[in-house]
Every structure is written in structure tokens, then in C-alpha cells.
């Protein structure tokens, strides 16, 4: 297990959202967390990325408690893309992506050739080389999201945690981002954990799905094991038919209607 949550209790102040949750992330897998709004998906992801300190239980990175590893060392192994990231105004794409090199730099080594090649590699993987000098505020939502992903890539971590990387994107751009994730996994062998809303895309691009409801893991396994008509009823209160995706062969959700809550 590269990353493991055991018995974590998570919340903000007195409001506990997740209580006693266990989850392990194996090396070299793409794991996608699904579930209705407010079920604790993002909260769990933030705890896995040590952005939120558990009120109980522990998060282990390579077997060691993540809060006991210096945060800078964690940043060399694990990169996080938060849900609605905030950048200072006037920043260019290249400035943003270069910031991803932060954990690798010191006061006397601020712009090594490694930094430079990591940044240009990240920009070319996301197709942003030509936009490098453009201010972030002038980009479209899709371009901006790709710029943030480039920053996480430039960080050069084996583990990537992406919180809804496809929000604000149209379908073509969603597919583009997820194809990029697949390439990162296939070519660079990175371990990726994401939160996604689109179940069909989640099924197509993940090795492993984790379905959550009300702070608990309801089901975890391959998309075929997890995405069943019964699970959609339990987790989303949704009546749906599952057919086979004619392109990828993965489960495809066709909604029928909302089940009245019992």
C-alpha cells in the first residue's frame, strides 16, 4: 500500500463528516472516488493529501504516518490538486507551473536545469507550451484547469491526488484531461487518486472505484464490481439501467429516475 487511511475520523471543527473509514491505495493504480454531494469524498482526499488533519485514526504514506514526515518530503512524493485552487492575480501559466518545483528548490538552487525541463515537459504534456506566457486570468476554464494539472505534473510526484479535475470543463475537455491521467498512469507508472462526478467517465478511466455515502465506503473494487443497479440505488437513490459501454466495454449508467427516499 502506498497510501492508506485507517480508522480516520474527519471533519471541520465539531462537524464530523467521516468516522472510522479505512481505505488503501495500491501502487500504480488509478482509483476514483464517487458518491453523492456532501458524502465526504473531497474531505477524504484532503486527508489523504495531509491537507486536513484527522481528528482520529491515521493516514500512512509508504507505511509511515504522513503527519510525521516533513511536509516538504511529502511534497516530493505526493502532489495534490485542490478542488477550487486559488492563484494570485496576474500570474502567467509558466509562473504557475514553475511553482510546482517548489519542494525541489532551496535558496541557492532556485532554477536548476531539472526544474526547467520538468516545467517544459509538464507544459508540453498538457499542450500549453504556446500559452506559457499568457496570464492565467485570460485563459478559458479548460485551459486554466490544464495549467493547474501541469503544475501538479511539474512537481514530479509518483502519487497524484486530483479533486474533481474535470469540473467546469465541457465533455471534450473532460475526456482530454482523463486521457492525460491515463497516459500518466500508463507511461510514467504514477499512482492516481481522483474524485469524479461523472460515473461513466469514472468507470472508463479508473482501475478501481470507491463508492461513498454519508462518510462510509459502501463498495470498492473494479468498475464492473462496483457499478451495479443495486449500488446506484443504495448510494445515489437512483434507479438506473447498467449497459455495456459500446466503446470501452465498461459499465455505462443510463438513469431512469430518482427513487423517493424511504
Amino acid at each position: 500500500m502506498r497510501l492508506q487511511a485507517s480508522g480516520v475520523r474527519l471533519g471541520y471543527g465539531d462537524r464530523i463528516i467521516v468516522d472510522g473509514l479505512d481505505l488503501g491505495i495500491e501502487a500504480g493504480t488509478v482509483t476514483t472516488i464517487i458518491g453523492p454531494n456532501g458524502c465526504g469524498k473531497s474531505t477524504l482526499l484532503r486527508a489523504l493529501g495531509r491537507l486536513l488533519k484527522p481528528a482520529g485514526g491515521e493516514v500512512l504514506l509508504d507505511g509511515k504516518r504522513i503527519d510525521r514526515i516533513p511536509t516538504r518530503e511529502v511534497a516530493k512524493i505526493l502532489g495534490v490538486l485542490p478542488q477550487a485552487p486559488v492563484a494570485p492575480e496576474g500570474l502567467t501559466v509558466a509562473d504557475l507551473v514553475a511553482r510546482g518545483r517548489h519542494p525541489h528548490q532551496t535558496w541557492y538552487r532556485q532554477w536548476s536545469s531539472d526544474d526547467e525541463s520538468a516545467v517544459s515537459e509538464a507544459l508540453s504534456m498538457t499542450g500549453l507550451l504556446d500559452l506559457a506566457d499568457r496570464p492565467l486570468d485570460e485563459l478559458s476554464g479548460g485551459q486554466r484547469q490544464r495549467a493547474w494539472i501541469s503544475m501538479a505534473l511539474a512537481q514530479g510526484t509518483e502519487l497524484l491526488l486530483l479533486d474533481e479535475p474535470t469540473t467546469f470543463l465541457d465533455l471534450a475537455h473532460q475526456v482530454e484531461v482523463l486521457e492525460l491521467v491515463r497516459r500518466l498512469h500508463a507511461e510514467a507508472g504514477r499512482t492516481i487518486v481522483m474524485v469524479l462526478h461523472d460515473l461513466n467517465l469514472a468507470a472508463r478511466y479508473a482501475d478501481r472505484l470507491v463508492a461513498m455515502r454519508a462518510g462510509r465506503v459502501v463498495a470498492a473494487g473494479t468498475p464492473h464490481e462496483v457499478l451495479t443497479e443495486a449500488l446506484l440505488r443504495d448510494v445515489f437513490d437512483l434507479d438506473a439501467k447498467i449497459i455495456s459501454d459500446p466503446v470501452a466495454g465498461t459499465p455505462l449508467v443510463v438513469p431512469i429516475g430518482i427513487r423517493p427516499s424511504p
Binding site: R46, G49, R50, L51, P70, T71, R72, E73, V74, A75, K76, G79, V80, L81, P82, A84, P85, V86, A87, P88, R99, G100, H102, P103, Q105, W107, Q110, Q155
Partner: peptide
């Protein structure tokens, strides 16, 4: 001046700052 780099990171949102390994 020694802290310039950290200051540059602190301009970002909290989650990004922590994600970059800044205390």
C-alpha cells in the same frame, strides 16, 4: 530575502501552499 520563495508560495490558496510542502 531568504523567505522570498516561501512568500511566493503563500500567495496561493491554503491547500496549494500545503501541497507544495510549505509549513
Amino acid at each position: 530575502l531568504f523567505g522570498t520563495r516561501s512568500l511566493g508560495a503563500l500567495r496561493f490558496g491554503d491547500d496549494t501552499v500545503t501541497g507544495l510542502g510549505v509549513r
